[in-house]
């Protein structure tokens, strides 16, 4: 077991190294001289040369790469071209809201979707099943910003239960955090509830036809034990996959929701950086997103082997 986990963790290193190489080459090979962007239109040749020198752009490519990697390993992601502040600090300030929002969304989604899927499969072809499936189609097809504005209209403007927009740090104002995070989380959750409920239902339907479910019933075990103890764990691997990729997608894809609810997360940071061609920030964001995907996949793989004792790679 530990051997397997350690092997998987070691396997992350080459993946991240390749990601770093691609990110590095991407920016070096795209047309345009970072020094020229930094210096602005009115810069002289001498100024440009000075900037190149200070950025190390005159060194051979491989030397630049190794210097960059060395900086990365020391936690130094570079300096923003626009705001001239440390990129790791910029991300550090912005990532908390995004992570908090993503975690809350995933928790809400799982708590709603898994029971929905289980019950839909259990009462296959009943009105509950059809209800869950209809909801699931709606959840997929209505765009996030539409749901977001509808929620704001109902819960913030009409009912005045929660503020319209904004963000509060949970460490400073826990109640305020929940009040402000609940609508964006619910908004984001609709599509994940749809996705996870569907996957849970399909996976459960398959498992409920298995012989060991009949064995459990032949033992006189109660239906809820059959469903949640015997069936759900066997159905869990595809559900975990969806939850994991969903979480990774959430972190990298919260741009729209953060804009609608005016949350200072990394989604907006990325958009701003792209619009301003702030290369060090973009570079760091790509690395961060790739890192989150790799990490989440690692956790999913490890969770498989915890769920199912037959899985040993």
């Amino acid at each position: 077991m530990f051997g397997y986990i350690i092997r998987r963790i070691l396997g992350v290193i080459p993946v991240m190294a390749i990601v770093a190489l691609v990110v590095f080459l991407l920016l070096r090979l795209t047309p345009g001289d970072p020094a020229a962007i930094l210096a602005g239109d009115s810069a002289t040749a001498a100024q440009l040369e000075r900037i190149r020198e200070s950025l190390g752009l005159n060194d051979p490519l491989h030397l630049q790469f190794f210097n960059w990697i060395r900086q990365l390993l020391q936690g130094d992601l570079g300096t923003s071209l626009i705001s001239n502040t440390d990129v790791s600090q910029m991300i550090g300030r912005r990532i908390n809201p995004t992570i908090n929002l993503a975690v809350m969304t995933i928790i809400i989604s799982v708590l709603m979707a898994v029971p929905m899927g289980v019950i839909a499969a259990w009462r296959h072809r009943s009105w509950i099943d059809y209800g869950v499936m209809t909801f699931s189609v709606l959840g997929f097809s209505v765009p996030v910003f539409v749901i977001g504005y509808i929620f704001i209209q109902i819960f913030a403007i009409e009912l005045r239960w929660v503020p319209v927009q904004g963000y509060a740090h949970p460490t400073q104002d826990l109640m305020g955090f929940f009040q402000r995070a609940i609508l964006p989380s619910l908004t984001l959750a609709t599509i994940y509830v749809a996705l996870i409920a569907r996957m849970t239902r399909a996976s459960m339907l398959e498992v409920l036809g298995e012989d060991y479910i009949r064995t459990a019933r032949a033992k006189g075990v109660r239906e809820n034990v059959v469903l949640f103890r015997h069936a759900l764990r066997n159905a869990a691997v595809p559900i975990m996959t969806i939850i994991g990729t969903g979480f990774a997608l959430l972190i990298s894809g919260v741009v729209v929701t953060e804009s609608v609810f005016n949350i200072p997360g990394i989604g907006r940071l990325t958009v701003d950086a792209i619009l301003a061609r702030d290369y060090p920030v973009i570079q760091a964001m790509i690395l961060l997103t790739a890192g989150i995907y790799v990490l989440v996949n690692l956790l999913i793989d490890i969770s498989y082997s915890l769920i199912d004792p037959r899985i040993r790679y």
């Binding site: 009949r214 032949a218 033992k219 006189g220 075990v221």
Partner: peptide, 24 residues
């Protein structure tokens, strides 16, 4: 009926691989 099963009538099945829960 659930109380009758296993206590008064029990059943064994054909395929012992699939009749046991693989994750327990």
């Amino acid at each position: 009926m659930r109380k009758v099963r296993a206590r008064r009538i029990a059943m064994i099945f054909q395929e012992p691989m699939t009749a046991l829960n693989p994750v327990m």
